Amino acid sequence: MPAHALSERAARAALAAHFAPGQLATELDEYTPAEVWDRRVRSNGSGLLASYRPHEELAQAELTCPFIIPSDEEWPTALADLGPACPLGLWVRGRERLARLTDSAVVVTGNRAPTEQAVTRAHDFATALAEAGHTVTATLAYGVDSTAHQAAAETGQASLAVLPRGLDGAHPHAHAPLLSSILDNGGAAVSLYRPGTAASGATLKASAVVLAALARAVILVEALDHVGSMYAAETAVELHCPLLAAPATGDVRSSGNARLLDGQLAVNSPDPRLALALPHARVARAGDVADGDLLLAAVGEQGADYFNTPYIAHPEPFDPSCGCGVCCLITDPGEVVVLSQGDPWESCDPWPANDLLLIVSAHRLTDRPLEE
């Protein structure tokens, strides 16, 4: 089929059925999706692509669910943060609700075989988020993720599921009733994969990346290192998306949390109230921090370096002769601001005014997440 006769939607669906976005990034910078498909068909020696009928395949797949693309109103704009890895499109159930749900999405994810403490934490985090109007977002996996969906449903709020397979079924299969209840409760489900596609290690990893990219914050309840939920957490780090990791318990099942927290790559807290603040986090100059703002991390070229203990700012004028033992060490010739005096440390907390911090503004802390 000539490129000019192929719709963008059909071309994107055809490309997505055969390639990962990163494999096509250079071509898509120069050519339309239809032109890229045509080029790939002509260069494919096996004849596999030439035998594929994009419009017919799309029409058949959309009998199950629609395929949305970046030009659609429902498209989650946050996915653009993935750059060359941005999906070519998404298969969706609950399309008409997707924009509203993704606007306030917060991921709650973790182990498929969690500790009892993690199950309790997942329920508490998801309940607090749902009651505050955030969209609990997770896979359908056993353990933490399914607990999060169930907790959201108990509050009467809709949730969003990201699946590593086609939306003609659930993964795991036993959670088909959970998927149905999410959709019946006003939620939605999305997938990178056309109906009929089975889950695999590759689809699980790619879906974890999309899971994190959709969210305004990610809550890692408990995770073994190198499992699917860790891919979501690591994507959050790469995208500079606020990340909370519940404290590691010493159980090997929290080894992923331990690694992230040891590297100061996540907020360390079991408190659902802090999770409510994370979606409102923003980067600000130290000199612009106001009284009552919550300080989460220092921000540098490599991203956020989270504090072991988030704290409330109380800016004071800089006085190098204050006697705290720290201010006298500041030699920066520029403006300096003191953001705390004695709490949480026993000295002042001076910062060059142009340094960047990840903060939550005081007016967003309707229920303060930390004791002052």
Rank of each mutant, 00 (worst) to 15 (best):
R9A: 12
R9S: 13
L15K: 14
L15Y: 10
A17Y: 07
P21W: 11
G22A: 05
L28K: 14
S46T: 14
L48E: 15
L48T: 13
P54K: 10
P54I: 02
E57S: 15
A61Y: 05
E62Q: 11
L63M: 08
P76M: 01
T77R: 15
A80H: 13
A80R: 15
L82Q: 03
L82A: 10
V92E: 05
R93Y: 02
R97H: 03
L101I: 14
T102H: 04
D103E: 00
S104Q: 04
S104E: 02
S104F: 00
V107G: 03
V107H: 01
V107S: 03
V108N: 05
N111K: 03
R112E: 13
A113Y: 04
A118F: 09
R121P: 00
R121Y: 00
D124C: 05
F125L: 02
A132G: 04
A132Y: 14
Y142V: 11
V144M: 05
T147I: 13
A152S: 11
E154N: 05
E154M: 10
R165Q: 08
G166E: 14
H171Q: 11
H171D: 15
P172F: 01
A174G: 07
A174W: 01
A176L: 08
P177V: 06
S180D: 13
S181I: 01
S181D: 07
L183C: 05
N185D: 07
G187Y: 04
V190L: 07
Y193N: 01
P195C: 04
T197E: 02
A202P: 01
K205M: 11
A206E: 14
A206S: 14
L211S: 11
L211T: 11
A213D: 08
A215P: 00
R216W: 00
A217H: 14
V221M: 04
A223V: 07
D225W: 10
D225E: 09
V227R: 14
G228V: 04
G228K: 00
S229M: 10
T235W: 08
T235Q: 12
V237A: 12
H240A: 06
A246K: 05
A248M: 05
T249L: 03
R259E: 02
R259N: 10
L260W: 10
L265G: 07
A266M: 03
A266H: 06
S269H: 12
S269G: 12
P270V: 12
L276H: 09
V283Y: 15
R285S: 12
V289A: 02
G300E: 08
E301W: 05
D305Y: 13
F307Q: 03
Y311A: 13
E316F: 09
C322L: 09
C327P: 07
T331R: 15
V336R: 06
S340H: 05
Q341D: 04
W351H: 15
D355M: 12
L356C: 01
V360I: 11
R364G: 01
L365T: 02
R368K: 06
